[in-house]
Design a protein around this nucleic acid. Structure first.
Lengths: 114, 114
DNA sequence: CAATCAGTTAAGTCTGCACTTAACTTTTAA
DNA sequence: TTAAAAGTTAAGTGCAGACTTAACTGATTG
């Protein structure tokens, strides 16, 4: 279970790293609307296709995007489960914070009873 | 409204950049349990205090952490609203994706009626 | 008041990573 | 069957950013 925690940590690491780049987030915005080929993804981004390929590889390596090549066209789709990795981490933080907040509330209530 | 969108985009940028570093996420994990001084935050991290100060500055600049100095001690708290910036972006992606998914379902239902 | 504690700031190093160009492969179309 | 389209891969460039050390400030304690 310690090993699986380490694996989870690396997954979280890759996802947040992937999300930290503005271009990659723009690609995800595009792909959440509909799947697209690499060229279609690249078109509005104002950079070389090679650069976009590298971004998509990062996204795929993090599990945020899935990719399939048919003929000479590689089509990219968003992978919602990848988003969940990030959301889950954020929710866990919020939950821990709220638990502490509740305990504080309990303490104050106790004080009121005195 | 375009200007405010740009402001939002920079906010999102700073938040995801802050979250992309493992040390900073570890700090947030610690602070979601309870507030702590800089030295307390630094203790388990195996790096210089100066480095930790820099990380906390990034977290504060992104709105993920709030900080207050009393005497010679600077206390750090998590700022849940910062987490919301990231969650909101992720939820928007998921929502766009689901909307498309629903439209696909509708199309298939139409086909069934033929 | 002297020494220590907690943090701050500046300057420098070193690595990672976001690009570029260029040469190449495979598929499709003329 | 040649030319163009769509990617792929490799190598190199330049900058951002995660650290370090060191010198400093301002609180606190003996």
């Amino acid at each position: 279970m310690a090993a699986s925690a380490a694996r989870t940590a690396e997954r979280v690491d890759r996802v947040f790293h992937a999300l930290s780049d503005r271009t990659r987030r723009t690609i995800l915005e595009r792909l959440s609307e509909r799947p697209a080929s690499l060229s279609e993804v690249a078109a509005p981004l104002g950079m070389s296709l090679a650069a976009v390929v590298q971004h998509v590889q990062v996204l795929e390596g993090s599990g945020l995007v899935r990719t399939e090549k048919i003929g000479r066209v590689r089509t990219c789709q968003i992978e919602p489960a990848g988003l969940t990795v990030a959301s889950t981490w954020l929710d866990a933080r919020r939950q821990t914070w709220e638990r502490r907040f509740d305990r504080l509330g309990d303490l104050l209530d106790q004080d009121d009873e005195d």
